[in-house]
Design a protein around this nucleic acid. Structure first.
Length: 262
DNA sequence: ATGGTCGGTGTCCGA
């Protein structure tokens, strides 16, 4: 089974690129973030025509929005609100006879890495803390689970182009990195992408739009993640971060990250 | 140290 996470930054604008990606990678399950569309206007038919007939999405006007589009059937699905906000940052499905999949869009957190000064940063930390409590409640189970999405945090030095220059930049500050580590620990989550790569290999899934040439200095960060429960550790086969998608015409600033499981 | 660019149904805000 191949499962992909991709922050597409508008599902309607990006539809041709998503089709291009599907033709190339043929994922069984496609998890999108920042769809930026209400459910009534979600391009459900376009995905159904591509074979993704099993769908769960939750969107709002202008901001956020997540979707799970699957070729494999699921009979259980849902969505949860986090930190008391109905802002469409999570959907979940349980594939028939397969894993439970949770698709997250963690808040970006604004510019100032201080929760006392910046409500958006406080929201980000609160969101992760709530995920941590939730994960701790799942612990001990032998269930096959996947959590993935745009976590908006690049945890390790190998996940950023310059550890030193990003220490005070939201996405790589020690406070966020520590919270994310606490989340991983509470749920026994395994970072599948890092597990299948070497610890010090530079891996990026996002490059800012604010650069004349995103390839020039390769100033990327790994913000998009796929984590699995211990029950799936032995099933991890390979991972693909489709860097070339950042160079496609009218790209998202994120590229798709795909995991293959046996 | 600064400012740079996207997308939305927008004339700013969030990323």
């Amino acid at each position: 089974m191949k499962i992909t996470t991709w922050n597409v930054n508008s599902v309607r604008l990006r539809l041709p690129l998503i089709e291009k990606f599907i033709a190339k990678m043929e994922p069984d399950v496609l998890c999108l973030q920042e769809t930026k569309v209400v459910d009534d206007l979600f391009p459900a038919e376009a995905f159904a025509n591509l074979g993704y007939t099993h769908q769960k999405f939750a969107g709002m006007k202008s901001y956020n929005g997540v979707a799970i589009l699957s070729k494999l059937p699921f009979s259980t699905s849902g969505k949860m609100d986090w930190v008391g906000k109905e802002d469409c940052r999570h959907v979940e499905v349980t594939l028939d006879g397969g894993p439970e999949i949770h698709n997250f869009y963690i808040p970006a957190g604004g510019d100032v890495p201080d929760p006392a000064e910046n409500d958006k940063f406080a929201h980000k930390l609160g969101f992760i803390d709530e995920m941590t409590t939730w994960s701790a409640g799942l612990k001990g189970g032998k269930k096959k689970r996947i959590i993935l999405g745009d976590f908006n945090i690049a945890p390790s030095e190998a996940d950023v182009w310059s550890h030193k220059q990003l220490l005070k930049v939201v996405s790589h500050t020690p406070i966020e990195v520590d919270r994310l580590a606490a989340l991983a620990k509470a749920g026994d989550w395994i970072d599948a992408v890092r597990h299948l790569s070497s610890e010090d290999e530079k891996l990026f899934s996002w490059w800012s739009y604010r650069a004349r040439d995103w390839t020039a200095a390769d100033r990327g960060r790994r913000l998009d993640h796929i984590w699995v429960s211990p029950a799936l550790k032995g099933s991890l086969e390979f991972v693909d971060i489709l860097r070339e998608a950042r160079g496609w015409e009218t790209p998202s600033d994120h590229v798709p990250v795909t995991l293959k499981l046996r």
